Amino acid sequence: MATELLRPLVLRHRRGLSVIAAAAPLLVLLAAVDFPCSPVAVRSTELVELTLLAGAREKGAVCLDGSPPGYHLQRGFGSGAHNWLVYLQGGGWCNTTESCSKRKMTELGSSKFMEAVNFTRILSNRHHENPDFYDWNIVVMRYCDGASFAGDAEGQDLDGTKLFFRGLRIWEAVIDELMGKGLATAKKEVSIKCLSDAGFFIDVKDLSGERSMRLLCSGVVHLQNVREALPKNCLTKKDPTDCFFAAEVTKSISTPTFILNPDYDSWQMDHTLESHGQVAKQTSETAVPIKLKCCMVSLTYWKKLISELKVAEEKKDWGLFIDSCFTHCQTPFRISWNSQISPRLGNKTIAEAVGDWYFGRKEEVKQIDCEYPCNPTCSSSLPTA
């Protein structure tokens, strides 16, 4: 059975690459500056098998359960044969021994449960589906550490066995292996850029008055020892948990980055406003005041998000596509990535906006939507977390 990737901010440099690891998809795009045009090649979308990292245990680069991590590689062709798109899978975090123990029994914690993947949407090798990157070498780096490829520690499972928090080593080791498979042959003059999909998490109170996202992030930071991957200039002034949030990480990123994020991210709404379904548990007598309070908190959330995005908005060569849809992760789905009913800003789909930004077809690609529900292209059919 094939796996559909539904989801991939900690800064990390490696041999000229910069990466933002997120709880949602992150893509690193590398291409020669002189990107030649070529005839459209017709190829079928195929399952891409899992490749396990060679020598993983010797390098200490293992999943939560100690199994070797894996990746999927689809070779480029034609004019894209020397261009690379590296996709870091997402899937949330584990912040306690208990949650990490449960996670290691799934594909998000062990390669034993990983299967072949269908490469679609931004990973597709079909021109009509992925017009700008269809002929590139495309890598999906599987996520099995629970801390955004950032941790480096060990823990003890509930059953007494070890838990391995080795995301940082996984990132380093997989990139090393890919270097030997062609990534190192790229020309020196390359355009290296990043795209973060639904990874701009913010620190706000939920309906109960608690800062549930901060509590989650704090657990990840301390359990998995992610300090090595956090911005050093932030750590000299702030608590490590503060430095784990996108607003602080963004300040330290020099690589041009495109931030793709909904104003009302459905995953964040559930985890930062409704306090894990709190609204649904209210009685009918309290429904109205709860809804009013939820609206007020949502407005606070929106204002804080827009405020924190100003750091990215003011950065030269960065891109923004911030729509007011209620959804989560938009690059893996045809309906949101590139279709007749995709969300649009400036009359552009996400695929068109990303392409315009990466190849410099427009001087500036920075679009921030108005407040919900002003955008008629936001469909109720969009996927939610």
Rank of each mutant, 00 (worst) to 15 (best):
M1R: 05
A2M: 00
R7A: 00
R15W: 06
L17F: 06
A22L: 01
A22D: 04
A23T: 02
A24T: 03
A24F: 02
L27M: 14
L29F: 06
A31C: 10
A32R: 05
A32F: 00
V40T: 14
S44V: 07
T45E: 10
E46C: 09
L47E: 11
E49R: 14
G55F: 07
G55M: 08
R57M: 07
K59G: 01
A61C: 11
V62F: 07
V62W: 04
D65E: 12
S67T: 14
P68S: 10
P69W: 08
G70N: 09
L73P: 02
Q74N: 10
G76D: 03
G76I: 08
G80E: 03
W84M: 03
L85R: 03
L85K: 04
V86L: 15
L88Q: 08
G92S: 11
C94R: 04
C100Y: 08
T106F: 09
S111F: 05
S111H: 04
M114R: 05
V117I: 13
V117T: 01
T120D: 02
L123M: 14
L123A: 02
S124A: 06
N125Q: 04
R126G: 00
D132R: 05
F133P: 03
D135V: 00
Y143R: 01
C144A: 05
F149W: 01
E154P: 03
Q156V: 14
T161D: 07
F165N: 02
E177Y: 06
E177L: 07
G180N: 09
A184S: 09
A184R: 10
K188E: 10
K188A: 14
K193S: 07
F200N: 02
D203K: 14
D206F: 04
S212A: 12
R214F: 09
R214E: 11
L215T: 12
G219A: 13
V220I: 12
V221M: 11
V221Y: 06
V221R: 06
V221G: 05
H222F: 12
R227Q: 07
E228R: 09
L230M: 10
K232A: 09
P240I: 13
T241R: 13
D242A: 11
F244M: 15
F245Q: 12
A247Y: 15
V249G: 11
T250Y: 15
K251L: 13
S252H: 15
F258V: 09
F258C: 12
N261P: 04
D263G: 15
Y264D: 00
W267Q: 07
W267R: 05
M269G: 03
E274S: 12
Q278G: 15
E285V: 13
E285S: 14
T286A: 14
I290E: 08
I290L: 10
I290T: 15
K291I: 13
L292R: 15
C294S: 13
S298C: 12
L299K: 15
K303P: 04
S307I: 06
K310P: 02
K310C: 06
V311G: 00
K316G: 05
D317Q: 03
D317V: 03
F321N: 00
C325M: 03
F326S: 00
T327Q: 00
T331H: 00
P332G: 01
I335Q: 03
S339M: 00
S342N: 07
N347Q: 13
K348W: 05
A351R: 04
V354S: 04
V354T: 08
G355M: 04
F359N: 05
F359L: 15
R361T: 11
E364H: 14
K366Q: 13
K366T: 07
K366C: 07
S380V: 12
S380I: 13
